Amino acid sequence: MKDLTKSGVSRRGLLKGAAATAASFSVLGAPALAQGKRKLRYIAFINRNTVWGKPYDFLSAEVDRLSGGDLEIEYVGGSDVIGGFDAPEAIANGVFDISHSANSYFAGAMPSSISLASGNASLDELKASGAIDAYSDLLMQQRGVMLLGTPLSGVGYVFQTRGDCSDLSYYEGKKVRSIPLYDPILESLGAIPVTTSPAEAYTAMERGVVDGLGWPDIGLLDFKFYEQAKFVMMPDFYQLRTASLINPNAFNSLPEELQGVLLEASASADKIGAAWAKEKRNAEHAEMEKAGVEFVSLPDDQATKFIGLTEEKLWDNITANAPEDAARLRPLFDNA
């Protein structure tokens, strides 16, 4: 095994402490491949042939590189194996070891999970402010899982619509495919949020059930929404920061050196993922423009109002459902 330089000491200390705290959980650990070798089972919240499957490639490659093959990340499946909303519970219960998840997918058990989308700070800035450590602590307390990393970041969310959305008045009375993260925003704009799964979103557009949709500003090409919706509103809002969750006993069952490997590999994969996401977004925008999509900008005053509205609604939601978490987290995100 290669010699490693320990990185992110406070982060490692947090994770090891969380793993020790979770010793009473009834979970499955990492099975041995051969003498000295270990395996962790990985699931994604959407299938691997989409952009949401790429973090597995980044993490598994970095783990293999840094461990010299002593640790393997085995891809078990995506939504074909378990629904995205069920995956965090499966990790907590030890059915699988690691999952790639959207933060809103575990908001039921941890209302403040959506805080991970707040603001536009970089991951390094959020770590420096203490926001990531505080978030990780709450995740362990309330969800029984550890935050291994944030494998996709650096891009925002957008609304893509059938009609010209260069003015906020467009949304009045419109039906827009949504998730709980967007619902309060759309309602404030006079729109009607409609809940569908990602797989049903295109059909809803095609059949006229919705006039647009909210989506991360990456992966829009996977579902070919440009065939039905020719306008994307700018500016984008929030930050896409997905989560790698790990079962605490699976982590704690690894030898200390492999724990270090996994943490260093995850940190490296997160940086790779952030750079890749930005490049992918730019490439997708170019392809969408070729397909006739227009990226339309709000007037400056409306853009300022809109961004303020998104942050207000996010923190109002957290404050209403988890006031102590909001009081702890918001200053850390605001000051990042």
Rank of each mutant, 00 (worst) to 15 (best):
D80T: 04
D80G: 11
V81S: 11
V81K: 15
V81N: 09
I82V: 15
G83K: 10
G83N: 10
G84F: 13
F85K: 08
F85Y: 10
F85S: 07
F85N: 04
D86I: 01
D86W: 00
D86A: 14
D86M: 06
D86L: 09
A87T: 07
A87Y: 01
P88L: 01
P88N: 03
P88F: 04
P88K: 03
P88D: 09
P88S: 03
P88I: 00
E89G: 09
E89A: 12
A90L: 04
A90W: 05
A90D: 07
I91P: 01
I91M: 02
I91R: 02
I91G: 01
A92S: 14
N93Q: 15
N93G: 11
N93W: 01
N93D: 12
N93A: 14
G94R: 01
G94V: 01
G94P: 06
V95L: 12
V95M: 13
V95N: 11
F96W: 12
D97L: 02
D97W: 05
D97R: 01
I98H: 00
I98G: 00
I98R: 00
I98T: 00
S99D: 05
S99A: 15
H100V: 05
S101W: 02
S101V: 14
S101I: 10
S101P: 00
S101R: 07
A102V: 03
A102Y: 09
A102T: 02
N103P: 15
N103G: 08
S104W: 13
S104V: 13
S104P: 00
Y105M: 10
Y105S: 12
F106M: 08
A107W: 03
A107M: 14
G108T: 09
G108F: 13
A109S: 11
A109Q: 10
A109H: 04
M110C: 03
P111F: 07
P111K: 08
P111T: 10
I114T: 13
I114Q: 13
S115D: 07
L116S: 15
L116G: 13
L116W: 04
L116H: 11
A117C: 10
A117K: 06
S118Q: 11
S118T: 05
G119F: 10
N120F: 08
A121R: 12
S122Q: 11
S122W: 13
L123R: 15
L123C: 02
L123M: 14
D124A: 14
E125I: 00
E125R: 15
E125T: 04
E125D: 11
L126T: 11
L126F: 10
L126S: 05
L126V: 08
L126A: 10
K127F: 06
K127H: 08
K127L: 10
A128K: 15
A128L: 07
A128I: 03
S129Q: 07
S129D: 12
S129C: 06
G130M: 14
A131Y: 08
